[in-house]
């Protein structure tokens, strides 16, 4: 079984995002990159599945993005190789900051098809930087296969996968024929830590380059703006005496409670 996992380099969760003075880009000063938490779960699951399936199974990680510096997407492929993936595929993108999700999906779909046989493609449900939640489903559409989103459990038996996904106030268990795409929620797998030996070993695993002719962007980001600063809190009183007033305001003013 050939499992593909698509990952993106995103600012780590300790980063405080600042917008550059031209209002077009994120200020890169002091920003560190990492695998996003959803991508990390997708990787952990891909490796878990490969290890559970007897026979010649492989995990291939694919990333598109910058090819050097702190944002170098190959570094994130190395992270996935250190977690146990067998091979990385890198798609150089000269301008990932202005790339729309459809273009990224086209690049990924082309790289996936170039891998020959593939059974399952995993994605994080979203990249935690631009939060489009689009690349997984779009890639699936381009590949002409089903996409199950927000998976919290995934099992493979033969040519089918049983996926449990988180829906509003319920979970859905879906059986899907392979090949298929699945996007990961946090609960899909426990996050793994790379072992030191595997970090050293990752340098010896192959990272191939996939050349992609990027189309003209389908959209253009015009402006980035910071969210409005949080307003100062309001102290309604102290101790149990303040509870009725608090409830009232939560209902009438904040509209946070409905009875």
């Amino acid at each position: 079984m050939q499992i593909i996992v698509c990952v993106k380099a995103v600012p780590d969760t300790a980063t405080r995002i600042k917008i550059a003075s031209n209002g077009q880009k994120i200020d890169q000063e002091g920003v560190k990159y990492a695998l996003g938490p959803y991508d990390a779960r997708a990787c952990a699951k891909a490796i878990e599945l490969r290890d559970a399936i007897k026979g010649d199974s492989k995990v291939i990680a694919i990333a598109s993005g910058f090819s050097d510096g702190e944002r170098d997407a190959k570094k994130r492929l190395k992270d996935v190789l250190a977690l146990g993936a067998d091979k990385g595929v890198f798609i150089a993108d000269p301008d990932p900051e202005h790339r729309d999700p459809l273009s990224v999906a086209q690049a990924l779909a082309a790289a996936i098809k170039a891998q020959g046989k593939w059974d399952l493609v995993l994605f994080g449900r979203q990249a935690v930087d631009d939060q489009n939640l689009a690349v997984g489903p779009m890639t699936a559409a381009l590949l002409g296969v089903a996409c199950v989103t927000d998976a919290v459990a995934l099992e493979v038996t033969g040519d089918k996968a049983v996926v449990t996904r988180a829906a509003e106030s319920r979970t859905e268990t879906i059986e899907v024929k392979l090949p298929a795409c699945v996007t990961a929620q946090r609960d899909l797998a426990e996050e793994k830590y790379p072992k030191l030996k595997d970090i050293l070993g990752a340098g010896k695993k192959p990272i191939e380059t996939f050349a992609f002719a990027w189309p003209a962007p389908a959209w253009e980001v015009k402006k980035l703006s910071a969210p409005p600063p949080r307003q100062a809190g309001k102290i309604v009183g102290e101790g149990p005496d303040a509870v009725p007033k608090l409830l009232e305001l939560l209902q009438s003013e904040a509209k946070a409670l409905t009875f």
Binding site: P11, D12, T13, A14, K32, L35, P37, A40, D79, P194
Partner: peptide, 8 residues
């Protein structure tokens, strides 16, 4: 590694 909230 996915980012863990400590930044030394």
């Amino acid at each position: 590694m996915a980012g863990h909230a400590f930044r030394g």
